[in-house]
């Protein structure tokens, strides 16, 4: 099972982020999610929101060495952005992402705020030979999960909680059942609210393809404590492959 760290580009500063990405690479990760800062990270919880606040990084202005480190290690990187931030200059932004070597993009607000145009947008992204990674949550209706997953062949991102980094009671067993029924044979990465190796073990037993971990790192990034990030990732890698 893959441990997929999430970092917001530009947070907290280039040096710390580079060190964190390098340590993730050295811990053997194979995939990573990189977020572009948003003015309004509406569906994010407090942890991730901090990484966006006042962050001026953008597709045209961020530390390129982050991507070099990832390429050196053969790690696939996926862009996480709010569709609201790119829909005005979609073509330019998509070709920029392509040029930067991103394998795919995850748009957490696409099906929620732009449902009416989502089909068209997905086809458009695919025409640029980028993968649109479907992003589903507990509140995504069954028919939408089926329709959107059938338009794609990539892995799927399934958010377990109502927003990133928070925890409300959840019945994981029924999530597994749902995913099996609606997404047979698909690789599913679970995210939101994943806080430790126990969660990783649980997801592994559910047959998860991966676990996305983001909010957990925010406080360590904030205090420049890359060592803790490295330790957590290495423990999670152990739990994921045990």
């Amino acid at each position: 099972m893959n441990i997929i760290p999430y970092f917001t580009l530009g947070f907290p500063d280039d040096g710390t982020l580079q060190a964190a990405v390098r340590s993730a690479a050295e811990n053997g990760i194979r995939m990573i999610e990189l977020g572009f800062p948003s003015q309004d990270p509406k569906y994010d919880g407090p942890g991730i929101r901090k990484t966006h606040a006042g962050n001026r990084a953008s597709m045209d202005a961020f530390d390129p060495s982050i991507l070099s480190i990832l390429r050196e290690h053969g790690i696939s990187y996926y862009a996480l952005l709010y569709y609201s931030e790119i829909h005005d200059s979609l073509d330019r932004k998509l070709s920029r992402l392509k040029e930067l070597g991103f394998s795919g993009i995850i748009l957490p607000d696409l099906l929620i705020d732009f449902f009416g145009e989502s089909r068209e947008v997905i086809l458009h992204i695919q025409a640029q030979s980028l993968e649109l990674i479907p992003f589903f949550t507990q509140a995504t209706p069954d028919a939408v999960i089926s329709d959107v997953s059938q338009m794609t062949s990539s892995w799927i991102y399934y958010g377990l909680q109502p927003s990133t980094g928070i925890i409300v009671p959840l019945d994981l067993a029924s999530v597994t059942q749902r995913v099996k029924a609606l997404l047979p044979g698909r690789d599913v990465v679970y995210g939101f609210g994943i806080r430790g190796t126990e969660d990783i073990k649980m997801l592994r037993s559910m047959g998860a393809y991966g676990a996305a971990v983001g909010s957990l790192f925010v406080k360590y990034l904030g205090s420049g404590d890359v060592e803790s990030i490295s330790r957590i990732l290495s423990e999670m890698e152990v739990a994921a492959s045990a």
Partner: peptide, 12 residues
């Protein structure tokens, strides 16, 4: 027919 928008909390 489409996803229910989640609740939002804007407190950092």
């Amino acid at each position: 027919p489409e996803p229910l928008p989640p609740p939002r909390s804007d407190d950092d």
